[in-house]
């Protein structure tokens, strides 16, 4: 059965993390949308980079990774969204498979007591069966010894 509850919590945290990283991706990678007839502005990451270089011309920070092309960006966004929906489905599946939904606590305790009794009774039977087995093994041994004596006699 596994621990569904911990899985739900882990996956939920993962979902929130995915949401956060999607926002971060959009923030850093979104290509500028240029209104017709206007000059193109830089993307956010590029703008930040230039501002930092201006503030600190002696040792400029490492250049940001190149902005994704609009096609790539659209593809990435589609992938991120798909992942998120898949994750949501996973959690729904986990919730749908929660154990013992139809049992109340009293019913569970009742069932546990029944099972305990059954187990004890079975343990007695099992010990008897084991004794039986021992007896049989002895019987077979005796037969073999007898047969051996007849054979060699």
């Amino acid at each position: 059965m596994g621990d569904i509850l911990t899985q739900i919590q882990d996956e939920l945290d993962m979902l929130l993390h995915q949401m956060q990283s999607s926002f971060a991706y959009i923030r850093l990678q979104a290509p500028p949308s240029v209104p017709p007839g206007q000059p193109a502005l830089t993307a956010h990451a590029e703008f930040e980079y230039k501002a930092q270089v201006e503030r600190n011309p002696q040792n400029p920070p490492a250049a940001p990774p190149p902005i994704a092309s609009p096609e790539q960006y659209r593809k990435d966004i589609a992938e991120l969204s798909r992942d998120m929906v898949v994750k949501e489905r996973q959690i729904e599946l986990l919730i749908a498979n929660l154990p013992g939904l139809e049992n109340s606590e009293e019913e569970q305790v009742q069932r546990m007591k029944e099972l305990e009794k059954e187990l004890e009774a079975l343990e007695g039977e099992r010990l008897k069966a084991l004794e039986d087995k021992e007896r049989l093994v002895k019987m077979v041994e005796e037969k073999i010894i007898k047969a051996g004596k007849v054979g060699s006699g």
């Binding site: 154990p99 013992g100 049992n103 305790v109 546990m112 099972l115 187990l119």
Partner: peptide, 11 residues
């Protein structure tokens, strides 16, 4: 609840 359910299943 899940702990009880696991115990029942194991028994």
């Amino acid at each position: 609840h899940q702990a009880r359910e696991t115990l029942i299943g194991e028994t």
